[in-house]
Simulated scan of single mutants.
Amino acid sequence: MSQHRIDGLRIAGIATCVPARAENNLDPALGFDPDEVRKVVQMAGVRERRVVDPGVTAADLCFEAAEDLLERLGWERDSVSGLIFVTQSPDYFLPSTACMLHQWLGLPDDCAAFDMGLGCSGYPYGLYLAAAMLKGGGHRRILMLHGETPSRFVAPDDQATRLLFSDAGSATALELADAGRASFCLHTDGTGHAGLIIRGGAFRDRSPADPRELFLRMDGAGIFNFTIKRVPPLVRDALGLSGLTVEQVDQFVFHQSNRFIMKHLMKKCGLPDAKVPMTIEDNGNCGGPSVAVTLTRSLPAQRERTQTLMLLGYGVGLSWGAAVVELDPQATLLHRDYAGTSARRGAA
C-alpha cells in the first residue's frame, strides 16, 4: 500500500487558467438531439464547458497560470529547482513539454524539469512527487503544473464524451517550511486500463485503420463502478493516515468527474454538501486539473485560518489517489481566463 506522510512543506500558491471560450451543451449547433442532451446535462451536471481554440495547448494554459503565480509570489526564477508537468495532453511526443515550459518561464539550468503522464489522478500524484523531491534534499522550491485539453481528443459526434470534457491548466508552488504536513494515499489498477483509452496515434498503432481510434473511448459504466468501489475506501484510508475525522477536514475537493458520481460518493462517504465544492456545471470535467480549478474558484482568496483539505483524483489508468494538505491564510489563490499571450514566442 502506497501511503506516505511528509512534514515540513508548504503550498505557497495555486493558480489556474481556463479557456475564454465557453461552449453551451444546450446549443443546437452541436448537432445532438435536444431531449437527449437535457438528460445528459441533468445527470452529469455539465451545462457549459471551457474549450481551447485551435493551436492552444495545455502547456499554454499552464504557462499563463505559472507566470501569474510567480509574479504574485515574487519568486525569483533562479530559486525554482524543480518543474513537474503533469499531463496526458503534451505538445509533442518529444521533447518533454516540461523542457519547453522551462524555457518559456526562464528557469535556471540547474532546475530539474520533466513530464509525468497521469490524467484524472494527476493532482494528488503530482503533489506527492513534488513533496518527495522537497524532502529528499537539494530542493527548496518546486513548481507542479497540471494541464489537460480533453476537448482535443474527444470525437465531435460522441455525445458521451464531448458534452462532458473541458480544458484547463494549473500551477502549484511548493516550498520547504518549518511547519506544514501532508498525507498521501496512491493506488493503481492497470487491469482496467482500457476503460478510458485512445488506442491510436502513439507507437502501439501510429496510423489506425479506424480513425475513431484516434479519439477517446470511455466505458462509462465501468468507470462508474470503479469509482464507487475505490473512492470511499480511499477517503477512509486518507483520514486514517492523517489522523483526522470528516469534521476536521474543511473541504473535500474531488476531481470533477460527473455530478451523479460525486453525489454518490458524498453519500457513501458521509460527506455534507457544504464540504464538497463543485465547479462542474460551468467548467465541465477538465481532468486532473479540475481539482486545482475547484480550489481556486471555491476557496476565498482571503482566509482567516489554515484550511485542511482532502484532494481526490480518480480515473484513467485506472489510478486513484488522495492528498490531505494544509493551506495557510498567506497562500495565494488565483484564477482567470486565458489571455492568449502565452508561450507561442518559444514554441518549436
Results as ranks from 00 to 15, higher is better:
Met1Thr: 12
Asn24Pro: 01
Pro28Glu: 03
Lys39Tyr: 04
Gln42Arg: 07
Arg47Phe: 01
Arg49Asp: 11
Asp53Gly: 09
Pro54Ile: 12
Gly55Glu: 11
Val56Trp: 05
Thr57Gln: 14
Thr57Phe: 15
Phe63Trp: 11
Glu64Ser: 12
Leu69Asn: 09
Glu76Tyr: 00
Phe85Met: 05
Ser89Pro: 04
Tyr92Trp: 15
Phe93Leu: 15
Gln103Phe: 07
Trp104Ile: 00
Leu105Ser: 06
Leu107Thr: 02
Asp109Asn: 05
Cys111Val: 02
Cys111Asn: 09
Phe114Glu: 07
Phe114Leu: 14
Met116Ala: 08
Leu118Ser: 02
Gly119Val: 03
Pro124Leu: 07
Leu129Ser: 13
Ala130Val: 10
Ala131Arg: 02
Met133Glu: 14
Met133Tyr: 14
Lys135Leu: 09
Thr149Tyr: 10
Val154Trp: 01
Asp157Glu: 15
Gln159Pro: 01
Ser166Arg: 03
Ser166His: 02
Gly169Ser: 04
Leu174Phe: 12
Leu176His: 02
Ala177Glu: 07
Asp178Gln: 05
Gly180Cys: 04
Arg181Leu: 03
Asp189Met: 06
Thr191Trp: 01
Gly192Leu: 04
Ala194Ser: 10
Gly201Thr: 00
Phe203Ile: 02
Phe203Leu: 07
Arg206Ile: 03
Asp210Gly: 00
Pro211Asn: 10
Pro211Glu: 06
Arg212Asp: 06
Leu214Gln: 08
Phe215Cys: 08
Phe215Ile: 02
Leu216Glu: 00
Met218Asp: 00
Gly222Trp: 00
Val235Gln: 07
Asp237Val: 02
Leu239Trp: 09
Leu241Thr: 11
Leu241Pro: 04
Thr245Cys: 08
Val246His: 10
Phe252Cys: 13
Asn258Tyr: 01
Asn258Cys: 07
Lys263Ser: 15
Lys263Ala: 14
Leu265Trp: 12
Lys267Cys: 13
Gly270Tyr: 08
Ala274Gly: 13
Lys275Ile: 09
Val276Phe: 12
Ser290Gly: 11
Thr294Gly: 07
Leu299Cys: 05
Ala301Glu: 15
Gln302Gly: 13
Arg305Asp: 06
Arg305Tyr: 03
Gln307Arg: 06
Thr308Ile: 06
Met310Arg: 05
Leu312Phe: 08
Leu312Met: 04
Gly315Val: 01
Trp320Arg: 03
Gln330Tyr: 01
Ala331Pro: 05
Leu334Asp: 09
Gly340Phe: 02
Arg344Leu: 07
